[in-house]
Design a protein around this nucleic acid. Structure first.
Lengths: 218, 218
DNA sequence: GTCTATATGCGGATAGAC
DNA sequence: GTCTATCCGCATATAGAC
């Protein structure tokens, strides 16, 4: 039976506890003892089920990335079916951002922890982490870059990819900081307002003129 | 005599080594042994000069944040002196972004490490780190938010602050990933291209319509 | 200010009974 | 699959000579 369908299985309890602890304290600062204590399982069970601390991290990431990216691709497929001349920039950006917020609602508190973890890992230059991130995002990039190019024919693929990267950075860090108050503004802002603001910002940023056409005056 | 002016002082060697190691491996994963070995100084000197590992991190951050933010504020002052009706969005964004690239050139390899460190810390939800970040950015926000509002009168202060946060996130993560290849696009991109691309993206994003005026279609 | 030596505890991983 | 017990190394921090 699929482990994912057994919410009280030891391996699931370990994944949940690891996700929270890695998010709160970082990978290196979290001990297997922290994790097993929080999960209420035996210390040795981590190595039994996952083999090592690193392999545990990989499992934590794989469990969550799948559904988000599948939702993104499904929304893109839907958009392409609806508009024969290609999806709009707004639609594409919404397809890229909304699944994160949607999944977070379904995951509840655990999802918030996962997003914090991603925020952390996005800034980590380590080979292991980056290769996991790239692998997870590869298909999304492959399909979204051409779709954006169709909607924004003045941009080259590299520029589209770079802008998607900017947007994803803003998304990831916004998710990480939401709850605490954003720098400068006095109050924390709720998730829906954040999504709206990100879409506004992202649509304009993605559609900005190419730098060849409009050099910046200084 | 000011410690900063003595490049071969033990405390400076420790700061440099700590900056590099924290950036490469993270705060928790870096031991004081790593740092003192790299710096070529004695293990006990860290506690003598800085008191603790945490205080060492704070010192590392304070050393670099100052010059960047001073340069930002100086550029803003210059822009305000040049244009009596207020600086342009392009000018403001350039004033916000360029000092980072400028300082990195002056700092050379050490500066790159520092930027990697910031990329890491930006995703860390810990109280200590966040309070340092907020303190360092407070004055920049205080002066840039009203300046942006003058150039973009359709936006409220909260929206301006949020968009600056998005832009800073893109900046920080771009600096962290530059050198390695950005997700999706095949090749690493150099610093100047990155700055140009960020300015293009940021100008459009900052100037996007407010969400009240243009609700997103889905 | 700098060194050696060391106190004291926690880290990941595993062996082997049940 | 789960548990206890343990190996062995590395961590931060400090004491005290020089």
């Amino acid at each position: 039976m699929d482990v994912k369908l057994m919410p009280h299985a030891t391996s699931v309890k370990i994944l949940d506890a690891a996700e929270s602890s890695f998010a709160e304290h970082g990978f290196a600062a979290t001990s297997l003892r922290d994790i097993t204590t929080k999960a209420g399982v035996n210390l040795a069970s981590v190595n039994y089920h996952f083999g090592s601390k690193e392999a545990l991290l990989a499992s934590v990431l794989k469990r969550r990335f799948g559904p988000v990216n599948q939702a993104r691709l499904a929304l893109l497929t839907q958009l392409e079916a609806d508009a024969t001349q290609g999806p709009s920039v707004e639609g594409l950006i919404h397809a890229l951002l909304a699944p994160v917020f949607q999944q977070r609602r379904e995951w509840d508190d655990q999802g918030t922890k996962f997003l914090q973890l991603i925020g952390r890992l996005h800034g980590v230059p380590h080979t292991l982490v980056r290769s996991i991130m790239k692998t997870q995002f590869a298909e999304v990039f492959e399909r979204f870059v051409p779709a954006f190019q169709r909607a924004l024919p003045h941009l080259e693929a590299e520029e589209v990819a770079l802008r998607i990267f900017f947007l994803m950075s803003a998304l990831i860090n916004a998710m990480t900081w939401s709850g605490s108050e954003i720098l400068g503004s006095g109050q924390p802002c709720d998730a829906d307002a954040l999504l709206d603001a990100l879409v506004q910002f992202g649509v304009a940023g993605m559609a900005a003129p190419s730098r060849q056409l409009a050099p910046v005056s200084r």
